[in-house]
Amino acid sequence: MLNELGSVVIGEGLCFSVVPCSPPIDASENYYSEVEWISLNEIKLYASILLATNRENDFFSIYPVGRPYLIQTDQPLTSKRLLRAIRAQLITRALAPIPWSTPTKPISIIVSDAREIALPPIFGGSSYHCSTLPKREKLQQTLLKSIDAGDYLLIRGLSTLLRCGMISRHHQFLEESINTLFISLEASFRLIIRILENRGGKNVTSSDVATYIARVFNQEPRGKYFEEYYESRVMTMHPESRYGIFPHAPLFADDCYELRDNLQEVYAYLVAGYVDPKYKDRRGTID
């Protein structure tokens, strides 16, 4: 997938992405983070692929190694010559000793010994599992162009949606993956409130949001926005609540998989107005 806004190169032993340097984060004075895992433009790129994935018959889950490698170039990010050169440099850099380590210890082993848990196959990691199904590349390009890296509410929602896919690969952390997904759900809720307020809505409620999104996908309006997850969110995030005290989070595995699929469709609409063709024959109006 090659695009001047961001390219992903799929190789048998090494997959990597190239994006323009992200703009500096211009948040409020309350913002400070030591857990930024990938850049804003990387979130844009990966999220565009995720949202373009047809969940009827395919799946997209990546595990990016968060180690940026800065380059200067006047070539477009679609240049195959440039991408071949970057691949060679990445391999050389990853196999070279680093100053604060034993001279004979390559960075790939340090990464494995320390905190990375998803090394590329070329450095000893597990083999990639690549789908052979056709990709919706035009949709992916539209989504990539439409995602605003400066919309931090959108970026937070997409970032947590991506990380849910990463965490859910480990059954021991399925609870945490659902908690992460609940953040993405909340971000989508606030994004729809923003839309309704921009249209003149006052004191927008969860029921208003539920009605809006139901009309988009021509479904029966729910009482509240994804209200079927309300009780599980309360019981999960509050160890003691009016529902009781439980030794484990009272969740179903489908709380992860079904909600993630639903949110992919919601975000594809919020980003680019895209609604899957399967809804067209019974799609309602949002006016």
Results as ranks from 00 to 15, higher is better:
residue 126 S to R: 06
residue 126 S to P: 09
residue 126 S to L: 06
residue 127 S to R: 14
residue 127 S to W: 09
residue 127 S to G: 14
residue 127 S to P: 15
residue 127 S to K: 15
residue 127 S to M: 13
residue 128 Y to C: 12
residue 128 Y to A: 13
residue 128 Y to W: 14
residue 129 H to S: 09
residue 129 H to L: 05
residue 129 H to Y: 01
residue 129 H to F: 05
residue 129 H to A: 06
residue 130 C to I: 09
residue 130 C to H: 04
residue 130 C to R: 05
residue 130 C to V: 10
residue 130 C to F: 01
residue 130 C to P: 03
residue 130 C to G: 03
residue 130 C to D: 06
residue 131 S to G: 15
residue 131 S to Y: 11
residue 131 S to N: 12
residue 131 S to A: 15
residue 131 S to W: 11
residue 132 T to N: 11
residue 132 T to W: 04
residue 132 T to I: 09
residue 133 L to M: 11
residue 133 L to I: 11
residue 134 P to V: 09
residue 134 P to I: 09
residue 134 P to G: 12
residue 134 P to W: 02
residue 135 K to M: 10
residue 135 K to I: 08
residue 135 K to R: 13
residue 135 K to Q: 14
residue 135 K to L: 10
residue 135 K to G: 10
residue 135 K to C: 08
residue 136 R to E: 14
residue 136 R to F: 04
residue 136 R to I: 02
residue 136 R to S: 13
residue 136 R to V: 04
residue 136 R to D: 15
residue 137 E to G: 00
residue 137 E to R: 03
residue 137 E to M: 02
residue 137 E to T: 10
residue 138 K to A: 12
residue 138 K to C: 01
residue 138 K to Q: 11
residue 139 L to W: 02
residue 139 L to G: 09
residue 139 L to D: 07
residue 139 L to H: 00
residue 139 L to S: 07
residue 140 Q to I: 02
residue 140 Q to T: 08
residue 140 Q to D: 02
residue 140 Q to L: 08
residue 140 Q to A: 07
residue 141 Q to D: 09
residue 141 Q to N: 10
residue 141 Q to S: 09
residue 141 Q to I: 06
residue 142 T to H: 13
residue 142 T to Y: 07
residue 143 L to Y: 09
residue 143 L to Q: 14
residue 143 L to P: 15
residue 145 K to N: 13
residue 145 K to E: 14
residue 145 K to Q: 13
residue 145 K to P: 12
residue 146 S to N: 00
residue 146 S to M: 00
residue 146 S to Q: 03
residue 146 S to D: 05
residue 146 S to V: 06
residue 146 S to C: 06
residue 146 S to K: 04
residue 147 I to A: 04
residue 147 I to C: 02
residue 147 I to K: 03
residue 147 I to W: 06
residue 147 I to P: 01
residue 147 I to T: 05
residue 147 I to F: 03
residue 147 I to L: 07
residue 148 D to R: 04
residue 148 D to H: 06
residue 148 D to M: 03
residue 148 D to C: 07
residue 149 A to N: 00
residue 149 A to I: 03
residue 149 A to P: 02
residue 149 A to T: 00
residue 149 A to C: 05
residue 150 G to L: 04
residue 150 G to P: 10
residue 151 D to C: 00
residue 151 D to F: 02
residue 151 D to G: 03
residue 151 D to Q: 00
residue 151 D to R: 00
residue 151 D to E: 05
residue 151 D to V: 05
residue 151 D to P: 07
residue 152 Y to M: 08
residue 152 Y to R: 08
residue 152 Y to H: 10
residue 152 Y to P: 10
residue 153 L to T: 12
residue 153 L to A: 14
residue 153 L to E: 13
residue 153 L to S: 13
residue 153 L to P: 13
residue 154 L to T: 15
residue 154 L to V: 15
residue 154 L to W: 14
residue 154 L to Y: 13
residue 155 I to V: 07
residue 155 I to A: 07
residue 155 I to H: 08
